[in-house]
Amino acid sequence: MALLRLALVLAALQPVSALAAGEAARKTALSRTAADDSRAGILRLMDRVIADPSDEQARKELRLATGLAVEKERRAASEERAALLAGAGLDRGRIMAMRASKKKRLDAWNDEFLKACALASGADTVKEAVAAYENLLETFPVYSDNRAYLLASGAKIKGIFYKVIKETYPYLVAGRDTVDERTLAALQFSRVAALQEFGGRPDTTAAERELKKAERLRRLERELVLKHENIKAAMDLYEIKRYADSLKNFDRALSYDRNNEEALFYRALARKKAGLAEDER
């Protein structure tokens, strides 16, 4: 663009001015290597005008060539802006689609969670509620922004369990204001024992079975903590442009959940940007 401005000035100069500044302008123009035929053509026309400032035909051709080159650059810049805007619009559309997919999946999980809460509120359906809670922990969609939601959900259903246990087996929560996995196991065992007292079939493996279930619930909760830490680390690395490093964490997230929309979306971007970074080096 600087060359074009110089050419326009040179084409407009009067012959006397051109003679005075001709050699300096020529040196300035020739110091820039022509990148294509249009630049080379403009340089040749500038040489003609500098060599003979009275050559009106050369001036006319220089003005025309410069005008065409300016228009070409403007058109290229306009096309580049349009491409960038289109790309930004496409990226925004993909982001919105990814977020919508996340919301749909989390809404479906929440529907099942509400059913589990309803089961947990009745003493006769506690067993089903515990099984439902276990399934919810197994299927929770882990994203970088829903750790607090999971914690709140866990606190809510455990609060319901606590209320039921306090009403039916208060000794299990004596001196406590919440429940844990072992409390749920003790509740299940107490219900089995109560059924046996009323003529139910003896179950000698009940205690061991319920303790194993309690340990499984605890393990699932620990695993969710690690999964959230992993996806958060992936996003943190992506944000600071350590794309290659973030890929390891995104891959790990997909090993837990191959349909994780967030991991799939940002993993694809990280792969692309890591490739661009390598090309630039």
Results as ranks from 00 to 15, higher is better:
residue 227 K to R: 15
residue 166 K to P: 09
residue 6 L to N: 09
residue 61 E to D: 12
residue 238 Y to N: 04
residue 64 L to M: 08
residue 93 G to S: 13
residue 103 K to E: 15
residue 16 V to P: 03
residue 189 F to K: 03
residue 167 E to S: 08
residue 19 L to T: 04
residue 273 K to G: 04
residue 10 L to K: 02
residue 276 L to W: 02
residue 158 K to W: 06
residue 155 A to C: 07
residue 194 A to L: 10
residue 160 I to Q: 00
residue 158 K to V: 00
residue 233 A to Q: 15
residue 139 T to Y: 08
residue 256 Y to S: 11
residue 19 L to E: 09
residue 16 V to H: 12
residue 93 G to W: 06
residue 146 N to R: 01
residue 125 T to P: 03
residue 119 L to W: 04
residue 249 N to Y: 09
residue 184 L to N: 02
residue 168 T to V: 14
residue 119 L to C: 03
residue 109 W to Q: 14
residue 6 L to S: 07
residue 84 L to T: 07
residue 88 A to K: 14
residue 180 D to C: 03
residue 92 R to L: 15
residue 149 Y to N: 10
residue 15 P to I: 00
residue 218 R to P: 03
residue 263 A to N: 00
residue 11 A to V: 01
residue 57 Q to D: 13
residue 143 Y to C: 06
residue 133 Y to K: 00
residue 175 G to Q: 11
residue 270 A to C: 09
residue 237 L to C: 01
residue 42 I to G: 01
residue 215 E to N: 13
residue 29 A to M: 15
residue 255 S to Y: 01
residue 172 L to T: 00
residue 227 K to G: 02
residue 132 A to N: 05
residue 156 K to M: 05
residue 164 V to P: 04
residue 91 D to W: 02
residue 141 P to T: 07
residue 106 L to E: 14
residue 3 L to A: 10
residue 269 L to A: 14
residue 128 E to F: 05
residue 168 T to M: 05
residue 110 N to E: 15
residue 216 R to S: 06
residue 157 I to K: 02
residue 167 E to R: 07
residue 82 A to H: 06
residue 278 E to I: 15
residue 28 T to P: 00
residue 280 E to P: 03
residue 29 A to L: 10
residue 245 D to A: 14
residue 202 P to E: 08
residue 189 F to L: 09
residue 110 N to F: 15
residue 228 H to M: 10
residue 242 R to W: 11
residue 65 A to H: 01
residue 134 E to G: 04
residue 73 E to L: 14
residue 179 V to W: 03
residue 130 V to G: 03
residue 272 K to G: 07
residue 71 E to Q: 09
residue 67 G to I: 01
residue 237 L to Y: 05
residue 233 A to L: 13
residue 21 A to R: 00
residue 252 R to A: 13
residue 35 A to C: 07
residue 78 S to T: 13
residue 198 F to N: 11
residue 199 G to W: 00
residue 153 S to V: 01
residue 219 R to T: 13
residue 12 A to T: 07
residue 201 R to T: 09
residue 98 M to T: 10
residue 197 E to Q: 09
residue 210 E to F: 06
residue 37 D to G: 14
residue 248 K to Q: 14
residue 123 A to Q: 10
residue 200 G to N: 11
residue 29 A to H: 01
residue 6 L to M: 12
residue 35 A to D: 15
residue 158 K to D: 08
residue 62 L to M: 05
residue 20 A to G: 02
residue 211 L to D: 12
residue 160 I to N: 04
residue 198 F to Q: 12
residue 190 S to G: 00
residue 29 A to E: 03
residue 184 L to M: 11
residue 182 R to T: 04
residue 170 P to S: 04
residue 280 E to L: 12
residue 244 A to L: 09
residue 191 R to V: 06
residue 1 M to H: 06
residue 104 K to F: 12
residue 40 A to V: 11
residue 23 E to R: 02
residue 258 R to I: 05
residue 3 L to R: 11
residue 178 T to W: 03
residue 33 T to E: 13
residue 2 A to H: 12
residue 234 A to C: 02
residue 78 S to P: 05
residue 59 R to H: 08
residue 152 A to L: 12
residue 185 A to T: 05
residue 5 R to T: 08
residue 200 G to V: 13
residue 23 E to W: 02
residue 147 R to G: 04
residue 206 A to Q: 04
residue 232 K to T: 14
residue 173 V to W: 08
residue 153 S to K: 08
residue 114 L to F: 09
residue 184 L to C: 05
residue 38 S to F: 07
residue 227 K to E: 10
residue 1 M to V: 08
residue 155 A to Q: 12
residue 134 E to F: 03
residue 68 L to V: 10
residue 195 L to K: 07
residue 258 R to W: 04
residue 159 G to H: 08
